[in-house]
Design a protein around this nucleic acid. Structure first.
Length: 890
RNA sequence: GGGCGAUUAGCUCAGUUGGUUUAGAGCACCUCGUUUACACCGAGGGGGUCGGGGGUUCGAGUCCCUCAUCGCCCACCA
């Protein structure tokens, strides 16, 4: 090889180069292949018109790490990308854009509007997917899916019809959450409750035929217009005399009954409640129970309707102000107090939702969700971290019916066809032809024509399509080969915020339509926050542009930075310094490799190998460390502790390989090159490191991999094999012995530093080895001291007398002395030894305390007791040595 | 209002079923240093008694109780 390599690593060039190469060679593409086991991940589809934000960066980095490792492990890895049509969000954007052009949605036909929506989607759709390529995402782009693709659309409609036929879907008038801005119903999950500072208005209602008043309290005085009763608790003795009376609604002077219901909390306010059945969930129930009139005093857009009689056409919040003035003038406003309460806001439009009675389509959830609950609780589907099981269970046990219809145009249109005015005069069918046949039959009218049928205007909730994602992205919704092969998927990586919107519902759909779980593991990421702990968001403007970050630090740098500090489920306090750490790491790796190339001989063909020199302790140690790391990293992956895995790879490369292995591999004399065999091993080890690194930092690892040897396309790192743990290479003795030398060398350096001696001053080393094989290890590896510590004479002798005026250390049971003569600070050294003695004495006191305690010796396991005895033995031995040493300083 | 989870060095986090030295890592910090890759570096170092209190145990950061603080989820108290 011996290619010239640049002295600086430039991620922007390297990353584009390899991404193109990977794409050209179709490494990310997967086809059904029954000789290989599939590994499947479906991307949480971002909104089709969305742009990449930091949350996506984190989330997709994790998916890519999992996918790349699986690919290297030999699985048929398939990461399916795609986008969500995001019904309400996209429609809102299109409406806004049209409005800016002076076009109102209401001026357009459904078809015209949808044409605009498709234009918008074509123009902005998929930008986010292009951005993901910059991150290195190894998605199978040939499989890019969209929830409005024809085949996907069909599957959604099929499921609707199927659930309707199973009587799981029904149509009914209920109180729903109404978004007065988007003009649509919302599911409970789409309502965000926020605590706000509001006012509690105390308003008095006159009792009919009396001078007496009752006072009610409300936070929404405008709803007085819809009042049809006042309610008190029958047990409330203060109001017994009002039983059967009527009250006058202020301003309107409408007579309404005073009803009795123990729903009313006597402790709250005055114990009197105004009842507005059309505009409050509870009041609706009261109205049903007591047969009250229901006055719909508000238009869909939040203005007062004709039925409200007063303030007609005014906005609800303007009316709130005005009515409180008017009530005050009429003398009915008793008190206004500050009040904190929770108000529901639309998740998408952020306007205050209005409870509203409305005819909508519903999905019965109770039965459907049973298997979904059980299979998470019994860990058939594993949540990482598992604490989210509790949250999940709580929701699933209290699941309520799902309002699935939306008064929007962008989405899958509900396949219901009406042939009459009655609530039941409809049929559900896939096509109008089928609908006609069914309608003729149901209505008993054979003369019905297709033109007599009117399709439901509403579309389905976005989540009613995305809950099929792990199934419908593949061909053959019900039975065909492809979905059978790839489903169930392996891992889902997503945010806990959409556990109910999406995760729970995918599990439900999975069991209903595949009879099986949709994925085996769910990895919940945290929220990416800024330094002040605020969630990064576009509206706050506190999020860096991911593409700028990539340009600055390289995708590898950001990937590493993010992964380094976020265990599953933990928030990521993002700061660009973590990316800096990532790019520093790239630089370190690059320079380590560059150093090797600088030590190659001209014209030599190197053959990287892991066949080490068995006589070399450092070789045996590094091979063992690599194997140890492979084992630990595999274990971390099994537990979805990606950050721990990365930290271990980081430390293996930086600490073990660069700081110790390379330092010891350096030729003895300046200008000398590595001998061939040594270089082959150094490169072979480097290859192993690049394999371990590749899932985390795919670009630099591939770059170096390709430099190490000339490779054919099928030998690219991203399709090479993941290192396998090899028990035989896990030489624990080598690790123990080498660690002992490392610690002793560090101690020697410390002695030099404490004596203020320059690294250029040659110092003698005298080792008095301890037990076991220490003597051999020290005498055989003199060279390590010489390389890492400017060593004069080197002596290993079990019988040596401690030289005078020496700095010393004890590692395990081996003593090391460095004669320092005048450079030794006698007083300081005496204190150091004394401190050590104190430390050991304290330590031994604890150990002896245990060993002298009969309860401990009798109750603790033998191994624990034995361990304490060993500690005592070693501690006492070392204490003895220290006391000897101290004598020289007295 | 109900439920869940957290609280370990300045910061971000490890710490497996209670028992390897008197609690670890990375970053940050301090000192020294341009020695044959890398100052985006090297060598060395300081720093926590594990939120407070109580309990169980021969032994607790690790189990139990309690208090405090923070976070998350759910919920129709006007």
């Amino acid at each position: 090889m011996r290619k010239e390599i640049p002295s600086k690593y430039d991620p922007s060039i390297v990353e584009d180069k390899w991404y193109s190469y990977w794409m050209e060679n179709k490494y990310f593409h997967s086809e059904v292949d029954h000789t290989k086991e599939p590994f499947t991940i479906v991307i949480p589809p971002p909104n089709v018109t969305g742009v990449l934000h930091m949350g996506h960066m984190l989330n997709n980095t994790i998916q890519d790490v999992l996918t790349r490792r699986a690919r290297m492990q030999g699985f048929n890895a398939c990461w399916v990308p795609g986008t969500d049509h995001a019904s309400i969000a996209t429609e809102a954007k299109v409406v806004r854009k049209l409005r800016a052009e002076g076009i109102k949605k209401s001026d357009l036909s459904r078809e015209e509007f949808l044409e605009h929506a498709w234009d918008w989607t074509r123009k902005h759709g998929g930008i986010i997917l292009e951005q993901l390529k910059k991150l290195g995402a190894s998605c199978d782009w040939d499989r890019t899916s969209f929830t409005m693709d024809p085949k996907y659309y069909d599957s959604v409609i099929d499921v609707f019809i199927d659930l309707f036929n199973k009587e799981k879907i029904y149509r009914g008038a209920r109180m729903i959450n109404w978004d007065p801005s988007a003009l649509t119903a919302l599911s409970d999950e789409e309502v965000i409750h926020k605590e706000v500072n509001s006012k509690l208005y105390h308003v008095r209602y006159q009792i009919v035929d009396s001078d007496e008043y009752v006072t009610i309290a409300t936070t929404r005085p405008e709803t007085i217009l819809g009042d049809t009763a006042v309610c008190i608790n029958p047990k409330d003795e203060r109001y017994t005399h009002l039983h059967g009376k009527k009250a006058l609604v202020p301003l309107l002077n409408r007579e309404v009954p005073i009803i009795l219901d123990d729903y009313v909390d006597m402790e709250f306010g005055t114990g009197c409640l105004k009842v507005t059945p059309a505009h409050d969930m509870n009041d609706y129930d009261l109205g049903e129970k007591h047969g009250l009139e229901s006055i719909n005093m508000m238009n869909p857009n939040g203005t007062i309707s004709e039925e409200g009689e007063l303030y007609v056409g005014m906005d609800r919040f303007a009316v709130r102000k005005q009515i409180s003035k008017d009530l005050e003038e009429s003398g009915n406003l008793v008190l206004v107090e500050d009040y904190k309460n929770k108000v529901g806001y639309s998740e998408r439009t952020d306007v205050v939702i209005e409870p509203r009675l409305s005819l909508q389509w519903w999905l019965s959830m109770k039965e459907l969700s049973q298997p979904a609950l059980e299979n998470v609780m019994n860990d058939n589907i594993q949540f990482h971290p598992p604490k989210f099981k509790n949250t999940y269970r709580h929701w699933m046990e209290n699941v309520r019916d799902w309002c699935i219809s939306r008064q929007l145009w962008w989405g899958q249109r509900i396949p219901a066809y009406y042939y009459g005015e009655g609530d039941n005069d409809f049929v559900v069918a896939k096509t109008i032809d089928k609908a006609l046949i069914a309608a003729q039959k149901k209505s008993g009218n054979p003369d019905l024509q297709a033109s007599d049928l009117k399709q439901d205007e509403d579309v389905l909730d976005t989540w009613f399509s995305s809950w099929l994602w792990p199934i419908s992205v593949f061909d053959g919704f019900y039975t065909k080969e492809e979905v059978n092969y790839y489903y169930p998927t392996n891992d889902l990586v997503t945010a806990p915020e959409i556990m109910f919107f999406w995760v729970a519902r995918m599990i439900i759909a999975g069991y209903e339509y595949r009879g099986e779980l949709p994925f085996r593991n769910v990895y919940y990421t945290g929220i990416v926050r800024d330094k002040q702990g605020r969630k990064m968001s576009k509206s706050l403007g506190n999020s860096p542009d991911p593409l700028d970050l990539i340009a600055q630090y390289g995708a590898d740098g950001i990937r590493m930075g993010m992964l380094f500090s976020t265990p599953a489920g933990n928030d990521l306090p993002f700061d660009s310094s973590i990316c800096e750490q990532g790019s520093k790491f790239s630089n370190k790796i690059w320079n380590a490799f560059r150093f090797l190339t600088m030590n190659m001989e001209e014209g030599v063909q190197y053959n990287p190998t892991v066949e080490i020199n068995p006589d070399s302790l450092v070789d045996r140690w590094l091979l063992a460390r690599i194997n140890q790391t492979v084992k630990e990293v595999d274990e971390d992956f099994k537990n979805y502790k990606l950050n721990d895995a990365l930290k271990k790879v980081y430390s293996l490369i930086w600490d073990d390989y660069c700081d110790w292995y390379i330092e010891l591999a350096k030729p003895d004399n300046y200008g000398d090159k590595f001998d061939t065999q040594k270089m082959n091993v150094a490169l072979g080890m480097f290859e192993q490191l690049m394999k371990l690194l590749h899932p985390f930092m795919p670009f630099i690892s591939e770059e170096i991999w390709q430099y190490i040897q000339d490779r054919n396309p099928e030998e690219a790192l991203c399709v090479s094999d993941w290192p396998e743990f090899n028990e035989a290479d896990l030489d624990l003795t080598a690790i123990t012995n080498f660690n002992m030398l490392k610690r002793q060398i560090t101690a020697a350096r410390n002695i030099r530093a404490e004596a203020n001696l320059s690294p250029k001053v040659e110092l003698d080393i005298k080792v008095k080895p301890g037990s076991g094989t220490d003597a051999e290890v020290y005498s055989e590896n003199e060279i390590y001291f010489r390389k890492l510590f400017l060593t004069g004479s080197y002596e290993v002798d079990a019988g040596l007398t401690p030289p005078p005026a020496s700095g010393s250390s004890i590692i395990e049971n081996a003593e090391l002395f460095i004669p320092l003569d005048d450079h030794l600070d006698f007083e300081k050294e005496r204190e150091r030894i004394q401190k050590e003695i104190d430390r050991f004495e304290g330590f031994l006191k604890g150990v002896n305390g245990k060993l002298n305690n009969a309860n401990f010796v009798n109750n603790a396991p033998d191994s624990v007791v034995q361990n304490e005895r060993n500690k005592k033995r070693d501690g006492e031995a070392n204490l003895e040595k220290l006391r000897e040493q101290l004598k020289d300083f007295e």
